[in-house]
């Protein structure tokens, strides 16, 4: 017991050091102009996409349900946060964090309302009904007056800094990991593995499906709020099913059910179109071909369900040490 708790403590310290180090390194590069404004914008986008990918991974990777309406939940978070910062009259610096929380809550509530009927279905049918709900949300945003109709929202304060996106990502990451490595997380995984056995083992499968679904929607809402205040404007047609599919592609590309996979894939798939910019008109073509090739040769995604952990590193180092005398 003693030994394991000291190891837990060590890992905690190590985690905090790494998280802080990455933050300081990136922040320094941005403030010292190593990254120009375009590159630092890209960094923010990467962190937003990581939150988005992680959030969908909860519903699709861990719970195992194919959701094709994720952009809808993101849109709800984005509009909620933006409408609050624009109309509340409070200073943006106070309203923005509150707005993000409000965005998460409203997304979660809508997630719950969608989940009640949708989670009664399975597999492809669930995919279709989430797609339909996602489209409905996008259409309604286009129709309502208070959401700016087809023109969308403009003049949203652009306050999503690198620090905001980074710490929101870290919070999401930690919450999702700690949640998944608990009895509640196990219950969700067991549903993915075999719903009938899970129910027979005493898991209230509907409740846990709902928890995973609502969580997924909430973090998508958070990503949406950050996105709105990064872009400075919102166009309702952005949040259509194509965007949901883009997010799904990031999840599958990284590996369904792998947190590490989601992170790496969000980085690669955000950077890739930018790196391919030199090929301008060919870039989407290359993107499409890469996607097909990856699926054919590695259908489980880059990471499958595996994770990059300290244990993997230790094992890797050990193996290298053992190999050294031989080579």
């Amino acid at each position: 017991m003693k030994k394991s708790s000291s190891r837990v403590f060590k890992t905690y310290v190590l985690n905090i050091v790494i998280i802080a180090a990455i933050f300081i390194a990136l922040q320094l590069m941005i403030t010292n102009g190593v990254f120009n404004s375009y590159t630092s914008g890209l960094v923010v986008q990467i962190f937003i996409n990581m939150i988005l990918t992680l959030s969908l991974n909860v519903a699709t990777g861990f719970l195992g349900e194919l959701c094709l309406g994720h952009a809808g939940f993101m849109a709800i978070g984005a509009y909620t946060t933006a409408l609050l910062t624009i109309n509340s009259g409070l200073p943006v610096m106070i309203m923005f964090p509150l707005g993000l929380i409000a965005g998460m809550i409203i997304s979660g509530i809508i997630g719950f309302l969608v989940g009640v009927p949708a989670l009664r279905l399975k597999g492809d049918y669930l995919a279709i009904i989430t797609l339909a709900f996602g489209e409905m949300i996008s259409i309604l945003l286009r129709t309502f007056k208070f959401t700016g109709g087809a023109l969308g929202l403009n003049g949203i304060p652009r306050v999503t800094s690198f620090a905001y996106s980074y710490w929101c990502f870290i919070i999401s990451l930690v919450l999702i990991i700690t949640f998944m490595f608990s009895r509640h997380g196990r219950a969700i995984l067991s549903i993915r593995e075999d719903e009938i056995a899970s129910e027979a083992t005493g898991v209230n499968t509907f409740k846990y499906k709902m928890i995973a679904f609502v969580m997924s929607a909430m973090f998508a809402g958070l990503a949406g709020g950050l996105f709105a205040h990064f872009q400075g404007n919102l166009a309702p047609e952005k949040f259509n099913y194509n965007y949901s599919i883009d997010i799904m592609v990031m999840v599958v590309f990284g590996g369904m059910g792998s947190v590490s996979g989601s992170i790496v894939s969000a980085i690669i798939l955000t950077l890739l179109p930018e790196l391919l910019r030199g090929f301008s008109e060919f870039r989407m073509l290359v993107y499409a071909i890469m996607l097909i090739v990856l699926m054919i040769f590695r259908p489980e995604g880059m990471f499958g369900r595996k994770e990059v952990t300290y244990r993997v590193f230790r094992r890797f180092l050990k193996r290298n040490k053992q190999n050294k005398p031989v080579s």
Partner: peptide
């Protein structure tokens, strides 16, 4: 992909869709 998960096949279909659209555009 016939033997792999349904989802990988679905993502491939999405890839083919993107491929056709962008090839047509070119």
């Amino acid at each position: 992909l016939r033997k792999s998960s349904r989802l990988s096949a679905l993502i491939t279909a999405i890839g083919v869709s993107l491929l056709l659209q962008n090839a047509a555009m070119l």
